[in-house]
């Protein structure tokens, strides 16, 4: 019973979202509002301003390079976090051996 109720709630949520999507500016052409001056500037001037012919690479590593720095930091964090959880085996007698 509870399961069906939750499912109904999610279906209603989907219809709300879908109804919203139908009124959004979703047309896949260059008249879309997201295809604005910024994007045109990237496409027209990326080669000149960054020297890279791959515009995505220019955005990732030059225009928005600080985001990329942030996510290399996320990767570093993941290593430290996983290392702090899975550090040494749990059994008492094994702890001595694996101490660094």
């Amino acid at each position: 019973m509870k399961k069906i109720l939750i499912r109904i709630v999610f279906i209603i949520l989907f219809f709300i979202l879908a109804g919203g999507i139908f009124t959004m500016p979703t047309s896949p052409d260059i008249s879309a509002p997201s295809y604005n001056d910024t994007v045109r500037h990237y496409i027209d001037n990326a080669v000149e301003e960054t020297g890279a012919t791959n515009v995505v690479a220019a955005v990732v590593a030059d225009y928005r390079a600080f985001d990329t720095l942030g996510e290399t930091v996320v990767l570093f964090t993941a290593i430290v976090a996983v290392g702090s959880v899975l550090r040494v085996p749990l059994k008492k007698d094994e702890v001595e051996i694996h101490h660094e």
Partner: peptide
Amino acid sequence: FVNPVPSALILTGIVV
């Protein structure tokens, strides 16, 4: 060209 910005952003999102 397709819009390069979402691709660049989602590259970050996937790694996260």
